[in-house]
Design a protein around this nucleic acid. Structure first.
Length: 436
DNA sequence: TGGGGTTAT
DNA sequence: ATAACCC
């Protein structure tokens, strides 16, 4: 028999970078370091550094409100995510060096399952050294540590690894962040935010209820989003305690058995979901929002711009997308987040040319995307779009093992060309004579 | 609300 | 293809 691990004896860390985009900008331009800094996308300040927060700037604040609150606020444009994305993956890769089981959540958060690593360190310790194990960082709720409790010992070792991770992030990448250590993802995430910038906290099992009941509303539970929260409110459920004590049967009837059981367990701090290694991305997309796009030519120009960036990204990734999708948002006075999409397989002859930087792949791709566009939008009728997005998905690894010599020499796309520098996709002036 | 991502239905 | 969730 394999030893069965009680699910509550895992050690999970949640690592959460401080105001990530602002940190990347301050690294790019150190003159911004001691100034209040906001990162702007369209008319929003999407994030800001702590200098700016002290002066009243909040995340997702309108630029006008932010400038009013804080006239000295320095703004940088953050609509191009390239540098953020690159730094984000450097963080994930650094964490993967500690343990390969790393799950990304957005660009600035990662979960790492430390269970095995903790187990190994525990085995290296002599029995008389157990009583000398210490915590790194805060203990949630100032709870007393019991060094005779193996669960405490493991979490303390987890806190030491978390501290090493944060040190490595700072030393190698210049980034600061928070960490939370607990027995599952939910609790690790909740506890990571308790002491805020650049600090870490460990949750010992006895304080689990204290942590979950400290939330002021069910929407603060990760996994309970806008829709579910509205639904729960309609049932008179507002607090975490309300959700804990609500009839399971009725909840299952209202939300469906799967969601009901999952969120009711979350309300007790129970979460058996594994840390799933993210690996390379499942999709690449680029989007642009605007006040108004109302002609086919305008749409085509925007689509070409999105596509040019995407082709460069796909090229650098090395894998090939087999599906392309076009997403639009139509102007409406109300209705939040109404997006429509059409997708189709990418023809194999186009896939072959992808990632070469050779041949014109723009033209056939734009043709495909414009067909998808006309499938969604009746261009003979007036229309008003506020967003366009292009997504490449269904990414497949290029199979190098099965390719023989002949194939190798006959397929320049895979062997002799690169996608960097002068080979990169250009908007209007890509001609054959540009290539060797 | 931006410009991304994921999974489930 | 959409809808929900996450940042």
């Amino acid at each position: 028999m394999l030893p069965t691990r009680n699910s509550s004896s895992r050690v999970i860390v949640h690592v959460d970078l401080d105001c990530f985009y602002a940190q990347v900008e301050m690294i790019s331009n150190p003159e911004l370091k001691d100034k209040p800094l906001g990162v702007q996308q369209k008319y929003l300040v999407v994030t800001c550094n702590y200098e700016a927060r002290k002066l009243g700037v909040k995340k997702l604040m309108n630029v006008r409100d932010a400038k009013e609150k804080c006239p000295q606020l320095v703004l940088v444009n953050g609509e191009d995510l390239t540098r953020y994305r690159e730094m984000s993956y450097k963080v994930t890769e650094l964490l993967e060096e500690f343990s390969p089981v790393v799950e990304r959540l957005g660009f600035d958060e990662n979960f790492v399952d430390l269970t095995e690593m903790v187990e190994k360190r525990l085995q290296q310790l002599q029995s008389d050294e157990l009583s000398a194990v210490t915590v790194s960082g805060h203990v949630y709720n100032n709870q007393s540590i019991n060094l005779h409790d193996i669960l405490h010992i493991r979490l303390l070792i987890g806190s030491q690894i978390a501290a090493e991770m944060r040190e490595a992030m700072y030393n190698h990448l210049g980034l600061t962040g928070c960490a939370g250590v607990a027995s599952n993802k939910l609790l690790a995430k909740l506890v990571s935010g308790v002491f805020k910038p650049n600090q870490q906290t460990v949750l010992l099992p006895e304080s689990c209820q204290h942590l979950i009941l400290s939330l002021n509303h069910i929407k603060e539970i990760p996994g309970i989003g806008y829709k579910t929260a509205k639904c729960l409110e309609a049932l008179g459920i507002n607090s975490v305690h309300d959700l804990q004590t609500f009839s399971s049967k009725i909840l299952e009837k209202e939300l469906g058995i799967s969601l009901a059981q999952r969120i009711q367990k979350l309300s007790f701090g129970e979460d058996n979901s594994p840390v799933i290694p993210s690996g390379p991305p499942q999709s690449f997309s680029e989007e642009d929002s605007f006040k108004k796009c109302s002609s086919e030519v305008e749409a085509k120009n925007k689509i070409e711009e999105l596509l040019a960036s995407l082709l460069n990204r796909v090229c650098q990734d090395g894998r090939k997308p087999h599906t392309v999708r076009l997403i639009i948002r139509r102007y409406t006075s109300e209705k939040h987040c109404g997006r429509e999409s059409r997708q189709c397989p990418i023809p194999s002859h186009v896939i072959q040319k992808l990632g070469t930087g050779n041949y014109d792949v723009m033209t056939p791709m734009v043709d495909i995307l414009m067909k998808l566009f006309r499938n969604m939008v009746n261009v003979k009728m007036p229309f008003h779009l506020t967003l366009l997005s292009v997504c490449f998905c269904n990414l497949k690894a290029v199979n190098t093992a099965k390719r023989g010599l002949i194939d190798y020499y006959l397929t320049p796309s895979l062997s002799t060309t690169s996608c960097s520098g002068k080979h990169s996709f250009k908007m209007k002036d890509t001609h054959m004579e540009d290539f060797p």
